[in-house]
Amino acid sequence: MTIASTDRPAPAAPAASHEARRRRRGQFSRAEQRAGTAFAIPAIVLLLVFVIGPAVVALAMSFTNARLISPVAPEFVGLDNFRRAFLDDAVFHRSILNTFLFAGLVVPLQGGLGLVLALLVNQKLAGRNFFRTVYFLPVITSMVVISLLWRFLYQEEGLVNSALSMITGGFYAGQAWLANPSTAMFAIVVMSVWQGVGFHMVIWLAGLQTIPDVVYEAGALDGCTPWQRFRHITLPLLKPTSVFVLITITIAAMSLFVQVDVMTGGGPLNSTSSIVFQIVQKGFEQQQIGYGAALSLIFFCMVFALALIQRRLTRDKD
């Protein structure tokens, strides 16, 4: 995932004799081993204690019937939690489907719209900083706050419906978006894209700005149309950025939680329940931390596999 060619000129390499360089390398290696470890150690320790540690405890808990609070000691129950998750828990199955549906919609929408916005604000226009700021505003607003706001907007008498009815000249009557099982998930998708697209606009913008102008000038000489220029020059050069965008949106989308928790509580009729929502619901609200931990483990394996597949696919095309 790279745009390796920055236009920063490499500083002139110091002229040093071969001999001196080799000697220095020899000295480096032991000092380098020490220094490298020393540089990395604070992060490694913190990572072990605060990320790997809890994950290992969760892993251990997933094979027990541990409760959040209970006077009875937890017992080892083998694969019972996993059996329950895979065979009995219909709501969890639905949540897996919902999560993939959400990710399947959000990844292309947010990625694509982000690129469109980036292209728009990459033009040399008066006021482009204003537009960049406005598009980025939802990103810096807390998801809890945004979910509270949109719950209002999506009501039957809410602003979304007023706006739609205005646009269609009163033709569209409106509905309670979050109360209908067939629209609730799409309502959450629209809101999530609205919230996150500014972030990916900036990432695309970063990619666009690493494309040197000379490339476009060459294209202009060949008489490219704007579309051809986009299709054959811009897009291929954005490839590394697109891999980055793809993977970060996928991971974020798979972790869908706050919007569901604040706006729908997983309803109506399980239509918005997500995997992480189920993990928190079972593991925390219903106090079944053993089962919640098992769901976390399944979730981790799924996202990990997905990330590996994406990496493989995008790498093959390189």
């Binding site: 380098e32 081993q33 490298g36 470890t37 540690g53 809890p54 992480v276 981790f300 990330a307």
Partner: peptide, 29 residues
């Protein structure tokens, strides 16, 4: 930019932890 033993292992770990949402390990934390 530095060469040291265990670098590959550490890098692998860091990539793996990228996908652990915080909400799911909050109780052990």
């Amino acid at each position: 930019r530095m060469k040291w033993k265990g670098r590959g292992l550490v890098f692998g770990f860091i990539i793996a932890t990228l996908i652990l949402p915080f909400d799911t390990t909050i109780v052990p934390m």
